[in-house]
Each structure stands twice: as structure tokens, then as C-alpha cells.
Design a protein around this nucleic acid. Sequence first.
RNA 1: GGUGGGGUGCCAGAGCGGUCGAAUGGGUCUGUCUUGAAAACAGAUAUAUCUGAAAAGGUAUCGUGGGUUCGAAUCCCACCCCCACCGCCA
Length: 415
Amino acid sequence: MLDVNLIRQNPEKVKEGIKKKNYAPSLVDEFLAIDEEWRKLTEETDGLRAQQKKLSEERKIEEAKALKEKIQSLEESLRFTEEKRKQILNKFPNLPFEDVPVGKDDSENVVLKTVGDLPKWDFQPKNYIELGKNLGIIDTETASETSGSRFGYLKGGAAMLEFALVKLAMETAMKKGFVPVVPPVMIKSEMMKAMGYVDRREDQDETYFLEKDGLYLVGTSEQSIGPMHSGEIFDEKDLPKRYVGFSTCFRREAGSYGKDTKGILRVHQFDKIEMFSFCNPENSGKEHELILGIEEELMQALKLSYHVLRICTGDLGSPAAGKYDIETWIPSENKYRETHSTSNCTDFQARRLNIKYKLKTQNSKLKTDYVHTLNGTAFAIGRILIAIIENYQQKDGSILVPEVLRGYMGVEKIS
RNA sequence: GGUGGGGUGCCAGAGCGGUCGAAUGGGUCUGUCUUGAAAACAGAUAUAUCUGAAAAGGUAUCGUGGGUUCGAAUCCCACCCCCACCGCCA
């Protein structure tokens, strides 16, 4: 949610910001109009209520009675207007930081740096689907029988790789003060809304909703970690609050028919380790760098080639003000593909979740302000598995286990 | 799934139709006292929103949403959540 006062006082700036994110600037005018109406109604209703209260206290029951109907009808239109106002306000995306490159979509993201060498082979490398099938560690055919398209079984070495990756990611993040969490994967709709993922039709189509229970399946553990502190006020000294969550993630992939239909790159269900941080607004820039740093550390530990992208305004998504992606080299596609993403959502989610912190002002008075929230992928299992399998393949079709994972795996090779 | 109990401010806990934004205790903060601290004493201590330059004032908030009433923390309805026990279950 955006700060109402920002829209009122700085409509041009807000227009400019949302336009960069491909939202219609007219949203601002729409809001200002309804806001004006809402204020008028509020003032009127409050005045009448004050009158009624006074009469009531003086036991002028008849006179108070006369006001009742008027107030009730005013309250009704106030409720209606309020609801509409809220709806419009919720349509606003977070504003991008000034230094985010302006662009219409993912084609205009900017490569910040490229790290690691591309693998070289003296044989014809295979893609992970073939490798995984031959080794019997990835099975999408059986999965399509049991569950339909875009599902997969990870077996044997692939399953063991997952657990090794989880352990590595958890341990790495824990060293930086992240508390490990296994969160619920079903959350209430109000929490999903607060995280800013179901405001628009397109977003709704992406999530699974359990009608009978009124619960959403999370698309990332960010959605259930954010609400952990909903309604809380932190002491300044308790920030940052860092979590690293492991959870299964569910995505309908409704808008991606025909895209990446084979294999496990784009599936309805995968496991992911996700970092999440609640922090002092002053430090959110630094915190973002920290999270990106951990992602890179993990990539370097796996010795995979990757590059870091600064995501442009048009590709940011609703809650983020700034975002980096890491794309990892996928030999069979001869290109880098997205494996990690980290966003600074500033106070956008905190406003709706109502998460604040107490700070001392200069004259040592206490006041509260919203925290900033950030999230970032440690490992998205399916995708990082693909990268490992392809980049570490051997001539005989076996997969060398990356050195850092051998201790967890107990083997050097998957064959 | 069943039965019973319950959700009140930072915490504990009273209130069960008006004078209640809410007793009392604890905590926290400020001041007095003190070389310093403790103790004692005095005072302060919610949030949101509207009007206003400000001072100030209005309104709303006792799990959530409706309703009854001139008036609701208090009565009614629905929902959510928590606790205990029973059943089922990894």
C-alpha cells in the first residue's frame, strides 16, 4: 500500500512512478476524486455523530432519535465510499526507486556483472531432461500421469541433491543471522492480500485458492513469513529480523501456456529456500546488498556461472521498489536463466501488514514508523538442480556432485 | 468432527446498557530526593483518521463483521482465533 499523503501531496511524482511500472497514471486522479468524496462524508458523519452523542448525554432522547436515520444513511454511503477508496488504493503498486532503470519489460533489464567461467566439454553435452531421465532421477512422465502437466518426481540423487542444497543454504544464511523457519504453505486471504500478490486479476490467476477453506497456497514462503509479525511494533534494537524459510511453492502458471512446457523449469510445485528480512528503513539498501551477497556466495560455492541483473521498472512487480535477479548458465539453452530474485519492498507490505518499529526522535520522544521488508531466493530447487545437472555432467552421463555438497551427499557422483 | 471455557490497552486483569479510551496492579518514561544507584513520592504512558499553519478540537477503535438502541466493551446474530477434554490421524 502506498502512503495516502504521498498521493495527495505529490500526485505528479506518483503518476510518474506508476507509469514507469506500466500502470495507468489516471489511477492517481481516480483516487484523489474518491478521496475527496470520502473526506467530505467523513467530516459530515463525524459532525452528526458528535451532535447525537451530545444530545444523548443530555438525555434529549427525542432530538437524538431524529438524527438517527440521517446518520445511518450517511454511514452507509461512507462505508461504500470507503470500500471503493480502499480498493483503488490497493491497486497502486509500490513506486520504483529513482535509480531503477526505466524499461517496459524483462528485455530491458540491465546486466550488472557476470561471474564464473562457462563449462567446456570435449563431448556433446546433453540437456537435463535427458540426463535426468537416463539416470532415473527426474521423472516427469509418471508425474503427468499422477498429477498432470508441470509436475515432476525427483528421485535418488536428485532428491538427495535437494536436501544437500537445503542444508547448504540454511547454514550459509544462518551465519548471517537468518533464523530458519518452516512456515505454513496455506495462508488466509487477508494475508495474501497484504503481501500484495492478489490485487490484480493477473496475480489472482497465478495463485491456488482453496475455496472451501478460504486459504491460499503460497507461491513462495515470503507470503507466509511476512505475516509472521503482522500487527507488531518492534523495538528499534530488535531490527533487522531475519528469517530463512524452507517451503514448497505452488504456482498455477496460468499465463505461461506453451512456455517451458517440458521438464521441471516451470512447474506447479517446487521447493524453495527463501530469505526474508524486516529492517529499519534507513538500512534497507544495505540489507538488500546483504541478501544479494548471500545469493552470490551460494552461487560461487557451487561454482556455477551466473550474472546479476538489475530489474527495470516494467519488470519489478507490484510490491518491489528495487530488484535484482540472478540468472544461471544453462548450457542446453545456451543462455542464462532466472534462478534467484531479491526485492526491496520498502514499506509497501509493512503498511498493509501494519508492522512498525519504535524509534527515538531527537528530543527523545518515542514514535513509530513502518519497517521495510525484503526477500530473496537462496535456492529454488528445481531450477538450481537443472543448472547443476547440466553444468556438472560427465561424458558417461553421470553428474559430478559440486564439491561443497559432497559432505552432505556422501557421494562424489550421481550415476 | 464433538463438548466446554475464553479473546479488553505494553503485560496481568476488572467492568457486563449511559458519566468507559476504559478501574486496579505491573512495566516503561520524566521529575523530586541521592555522590551515583535502589527505594519512596509526583506526573506521564494507545492507534488511526478528519478539520486546522499551529494550538486545539471532532470521530472511530475492548477478536472481526453486522444488528438492536437516543446511547453498546456490555444485549443479539454470523464469522475468526486461542485454550482444555473426547474422537480421528502422520
